[in-house]
Structures are given as C-alpha cells and as structure tokens.
C-alpha cells in the first residue's frame, strides 16, 4: 500500500512487447524548449515511463540527455523523475510530491510526456510548466522506432464493415464510400509511397469474398461522437 492505494507495480521495463499501440510523440527542438524557459535558471525535469519512453521522446535516456543539454545551456537542473504513466493524474501528483523540494526549488518544470501527461503534471502544481514534446497520434508500432496511425479515435467504429482497415484514418480525406479520383493504380494521391486505403480494403474484402460490402452506401458520419473534450465514466 502506498498513499492509501493498493498498487500492483509491474517491474518489467517498458518494451515494445508490452505496448502495441501508444500515443506517439516527438521532442520539440532544443531552441524552442530553451526559448520557452528563457528566464528560468533552475529546471526540474519530468519524463514518462510509458509512451514517451517507447517513442524515445521522454524516457530515462531522453531525460538524461535533456539534463545534459540544459546544463550545457547554462541551466541548473534541480532534479528529475520519470513518472510511470504521466497521464495518470494521481500518480503524477504523488511522484511530484515525492520530489517536493527539488520541484519547489525549480523556476520551471519541463515535461517530456504527451499533452495528456503535461496537463496531469501541471494540474498538480502551481509551478510554470513547459511542454517539451509535440504529441502526434495514437500509433501502432511497426517495429522499433517506427509508428503508424491506424485509428483516429472517432467514437463510431466501422472496421467490421471495411475489412478492418480504417478509411477514416488511413484515407487522408477520411472517405467512407470508396476511393477519390486521385487513386492511381491503388496508390494514394497525397503520397505515392502509400497504398490507397480503399484499395487495401478492396483487396482485403476480395480475399474474404465479401466485396458486396463495397456496394453499401455509408451514410453521413456522426462527428458528435468525437466532440471534445471526451469524457467517460464507467458505470458499475
């Protein structure tokens, strides 16, 4: 029991074996980060042990490298912590309290976590908080260091109808009723390196013998299912 919470701590290091999809992020360039902390001499560094670790944008290693970079730039680093899931609001608060003195000594907190992580950190402290990453998308892991967006979190899943290839995401126009006029030999007009989403769907449905699904006109999408900010409370 820690802080009144029963904790089931998984001590395995976060590897790609454990995470098949994640929030993909990349570090902002150092000049931009330094400009955001122009008047701040002392910095406390925060990373995330989950997605940002696998994306190599804010794990132990990147926090260490950032510390070196900040010191070279004349900053004092008061301390650092890599939160196990920075998006977990209670855990983020708890981990910051554990380093209370170092946090309080700092002029600014630099967070190397996704936008959700940055906000759960900043919610727990009145300190100036700086976002060190750009958060990109919910990504599948192709292989180490290679991520691809497959799902747009649209709140109205149609994968069953499309051979489990998402046109909302894989088609740059999110077209629901087939390819646009820019498809060329099964390739996408926006990037000739990419296969057209509808070509992929067509091939998959052909293999499954269910191309009849392509005859159905898909009605206008209900975008109210993805109105922001999303909220979910599981009823028991």
């Amino acid at each position: 029991m820690v802080g009144g919470f029963p904790l089931t701590i998984d001590h395995r290091p976060p590897t790609i074996d454990r995470f098949k999809t994640m929030i993909v992020s990349k570090q902002k360039n150092l000049d931009e980060i330094l400009a955001a902390m122009a008047g701040d001499g002392k910095v406390f560094l925060i990373g995330c042990a989950k997605c940002a670790t696998v994306c190599k944008s804010g794990g132990e290693e990147e926090v260490w490298q950032m510390q070196e970079a900040l010191i070279s730039a004349g900053k004092e680093v008061t301390g650092s912590v890599v939160i196990d899931e920075a998006c977990h609001m209670l855990r983020a608060g708890r981990d910051l309290r554990a380093k209370k003195e170092m946090v309080e000594e700092a002029d600014a907190l630099l967070v190397l976590a996704c936008g959700a992580g940055v906000q759960s950190v900043s919610a727990g402290t009145p300190k100036k908080t700086v976002a060190g990453l750009d958060t990109l998308f919910l990504g599948n892991i192709r292989r180490f260091g290679q991520f691809e967006q497959k799902c747009s979190l649209c709140g109205e899943c149609i994968l069953t109808e499309t051979g489990c290839i998402c046109p909302v995401t894989v088609c740059p126009k999110g077209l629901l009723n087939g390819p646009c006029g820019g498809m060329d030999n099964g390739l996408c007009e926006t990037d000739r390196e990419n296969e057209c989403a509808w070509f992929q769907i067509y091939e998959r449905l052909q293999a499954q013998g269910t191309t009849d699904k392509l005859k159905r006109t898909v009605p206008q999408k209900d975008f109210s299912k993805m109105l922001k900010p999303g909220k979910l409370k599981i009823e028991r």
């Binding site: 087939g178 390819p179 030999n185 099964g186 509808w198 006109t217």
Partner: peptide, 13 residues
C-alpha cells in the same frame, strides 16, 4: 483509373 472495378462501386453509389 485502376483498378476500375473498385472505382465502379463508387460510380454506382
């Protein structure tokens, strides 16, 4: 356009 059968579904729609 190729494959034409794929575009034809959309033309029908």
């Amino acid at each position: 356009a190729e494959p034409f059968p794929l575009t034809f579904y959309k033309l029908e729609k």
